[in-house]
Design a protein around this nucleic acid. Structure first.
Lengths: 341, 341
DNA sequence: TATTCTAATGAAAACGTTTGCAAGTCTTTT
DNA sequence: AAAAGACTTGCAAACGTTTTCATTAGAATA
C-alpha cells in the first residue's frame, strides 16, 4: 500500500495553490464579507474540487470544545437503553454533535472509570444513568463542582444536583396497580427489582399506595424482590410467590412478568381469568409472547432525545446552567394478560 | 454558576508554578531519562496534586490520530447488533480507543452521510455493517482508496476490498436445514430475509444445497422472502406458507420463526410433532417463547471484538495493511421447537 | 588552565484552525 | 492634489502538546 501523504488536504494547501494566505482562505470558506467575491469563489471552487474537510481536531483545540457528548449507560444489550441511545443519537447528530457511548455493565468501578475518561477532555458534557451497584456519587458530583454539563436519566439519584429526565415511577406503578384493581383483582402479587435502586423503591411505593387508596389488602407473602434480569433466575425467584394464591400480579419488568406467567401456567391457573398480569417497560417480547402482556410503556426514545436536548442547551450556555427535572409521561398498554370485563 | 476559568490545568501551569519550561514538564511526565530525578518528582507530585489530565485534543492534533474508532451499524435497537457493539467497545476501550457509534437506521443515505462525517478527521478507522438498502459501495471504497483502515462485519459486500468478519451463512443454513432433515422432515418451508442482502442470499443457497445433498425435494410454494422485521408484518408474510402443508420450517431470523409458529399454531398443527422449526440468531426471545425455539447462535459479541481487533491492528500499522477474511463459527442450539426422536 | 564531554534544560517549531490588528491599495471627498 | 475612507489582504498569536535543536553549567580530561 502506498503511503497516504497528502491524502487529506488543508487550508494551507489551498492557500498555497492560490497564492494567498491561510487567513483569507479561512475567511472565504466562512463566507466572510471581508473577502472579495472573486477570491471567495476561487477558494470555494478549489475546496470543492479537493473535497476539503476542515480538520476537526484543530477546530476543537482552538474552540475548546469537542462537539462530542459522552453517554454512560448500564447496559447496551437492553431494549430500553438501546432505545434511549437512539434518541440521544438522533438529537445529537441533528445538532452536529457526535456521541461516545460507554456501558458500565452495571459495574460501579467501570462507571467511575468511564466518567473520568470522558471527563478528561474528550467530551463537552455527559449523559448518565447509574449502575445498579452505584451508591456513591462523587464521580458525578465532580462534574457538578467543575461546572461541566451533566444530565442524569432514568436512574437519577436525588443526591446529585443535576438536571434529570425520568418517568414518575411512583405514578406509573400506581397506574398499573389501579388497572389490576379495576379488573377486580383483590389480592395482588408484586414482583420487583432490587430495592436499592430508587426506581424500584418508588414503584413499590406506588404499588402500595394504590392498594391503600383503594382499600385492597397488602400481602407481604406474595412480594418478591428479584435481583437478576436473567430469565431463568427470574423464573426461580418468582416461583416463591405461587406457593400462595392471588388474582393479580404486577411485575416491574416485562421479563419478570413473563417469568411469573410461566410459573402461573405451571400451576394450571388461567390468565387473565384466574390471574391478571401486568408488566413494565413494554419490551418487544411482551407483545409477542402468548398471552401478550399488558404493560407500562416507558418512552425510552423520548427520554434519550430530551436528555440530549437539555444537555446541549447547557453546553451552549454554560454560564447559566439551571437545574431542571423533566418527568416524562408513561402509558398503560392493555393486552391479553389483563383483558377481562 | 461561577465561570470555570482554570478549572482545567495545563502543562504550562505546572511549568509556571515550578519555574521551569513546558518542555521539561512534558518530559518529566513521560518519565524521560533526560530530566533530573528531583525535577521529575516535583513535576509528578504537582501533576498529581492538581489531578492533571493531558488535553486530548492537543495530543490528537499533534499526533494526527484521534484514538477513536467509528462504527456504522444498521440498527442499535437490535439484540445482535447491540451485542456486536459491546464486543467492539470492550476491545477498543482495553486498547485506549474511544468508540463513536452511529446507526444508519437501515437507510442508505444516512449510511453515506455518517461515513463521510466520520471520515472527516474524527476517527482513525471505521467498522461498518451496511444497511439493507445499500447497493452502491462508493462511500466504502473511498476508505480503501485513501488507505484508511476499514473493517466490514456481518453484512460485508464482496465488491469492497477490505477486511471482513462474518459468519459462514451458507454453512450455517446448511447446518440448520440438515438438522431438520435429521429430525425426519421431508418437506421444509423456508422463510428468508430480503434477498438483495448477501447474507440472506447465501442462507437460501445453503438451505437449497442441504436439501439437494440429502435428496429432499425443494418446494417453491412454501418459500417466503420477508422484507420487514416487524413482528406483525412477519406474521402476515408467513401466513402465505401455511396455505400448504409441510413438516419442517427454517427461518433466517428468530422473529420470523416465531411469527411462523404463531400461524402454525393457529392451524392446530403441533410443534415439534407435526412441524419442526428452527430459527436463526439466538435472540433472547427464542429461549423464552413457548415452545422455545431451536436456532443458530450467531456470535455477535465475538464478531464485535474480533472486528475491533483487526481494525486496531490496521491502525497501528497503516503501512502494511493486509486484507483478511475472518469466518466465525456458529453453533446449533436445539430447543423444544425441533426436539423429537 | 584550556579543552572536551556529559547532563539538564529551554526555545522554538509544528499540528490546522480562527481572528485581532496592521497595512496595503483604491476610491472618494474636500 | 491631499486627506480620509472603504475594501482587501496578510501577519502573528493562540489553543496544549511533543520533539528537535541549541544552550548552559559543571565535570572530566589533557
Amino acid at each position: 500500500m502506498a503511503i497516504d501523504k497528502k491524502s487529506t488536504i488543508t487550508i494551507k494547501d489551498i492557500a498555497g495553490e492560490l497564492g494567498i494566505s491561510a487567513s483569507t482562505v479561512s475567511r472565504a470558506l466562512a463566507n466572510s464579507p471581508l473577502v472579495k467575491p472573486e477570491t471567495r469563489e476561487a477558494v470555494q471552487a478549489l475546496a470543492k474540487k479537493y473535497n476539503f474537510q476542515p480538520n476537526y481536531t484543530a477546530l476543537s483545540l482552538r474552540s475548546n470544545q469537542t462537539k462530542t457528548i459522552g453517554v454512560i449507560i448500564p447496559q447496551i444489550v437492553h431494549n430500553f437503553f438501546s432505545l434511549v441511545i437512539r434518541g440521544i443519537e438522533d438529537y445529537s447528530y441533528s445538532q452536529g454533535y457526535s456521541v461516545i457511548v460507554s456501558s458500565s455493565q452495571e459495574i460501579y468501578e467501570r462507571e467511575v472509570m468511564d466518567s473520568r475518561t470522558l471527563l478528561a477532555g474528550r467530551v463537552d458534557g455527559l449523559l448518565a444513568c447509574i449502575s445498579k451497584e452505584t451508591g456513591n456519587y462523587d464521580h458525578l458530583n465532580e462534574f457538578v463542582d467543575r461546572n461541566i454539563p451533566l444530565v442524569l436519566f432514568d436512574r437519577a439519584p436525588e443526591k446529585v444536583n443535576a438536571t434529570k429526565v425520568v418517568i414518575d415511577d411512583f405514578q406509573a406503578a400506581y397506574l398499573a396497580t389501579s388497572h389490576l384493581i379495576e379488573k377486580e383483582c383483590r389480592k395482588i402479587s408484586y414482583i420487583g427489582g432490587p430495592e436499592n435502586l430508587n426506581i424500584y423503591k418508588r414503584r413499590f411505593e406506588g404499588f402500595k399506595a394504590a392498594l391503600k387508596d383503594q382499600n385492597v389488602a397488602f400481602h407481604p407473602e406474595i412480594v418478591v424482590h428479584c435481583e437478576s434480569e436473567d430469565f431463568d433466575e427470574c423464573v426461580d425467584a418468582t416461583a416463591k410467590v405461587t406457593g400462595s394464591t392471588f388474582d393479580g400480579l404486577f411485575a416491574t419488568t416485562d421479563i419478570m412478568a413473563i417469568a411469573a406467567i410461566k410459573n402461573i401456567k405451571k400451576k394450571g391457573w388461567k390468565i387473565p381469568e384466574d390471574v391478571a398480569v401486568i408488566g413494565f417497560s413494554n419490551w418487544p417480547i411482551s407483545s409477542i409472547y402468548e398471552p401478550s402482556v399488558s404493560t407500562i410503556d416507558q418512552p425510552g426514545y423520548e427520554m434519550g432525545r430530551r436528555s440530549a436536548q437539555l444537555l446541549i442547551e447547557q453546553i451552549k450556555d454554560k454560564e447559566n446552567i439551571s437545574i431542571k427535572k423533566d418527568i416524562l409521561p408513561v402509558e398503560l398498554i392493555e393486552r391479553e394478560s389483563s383483558k377481562r370485563a
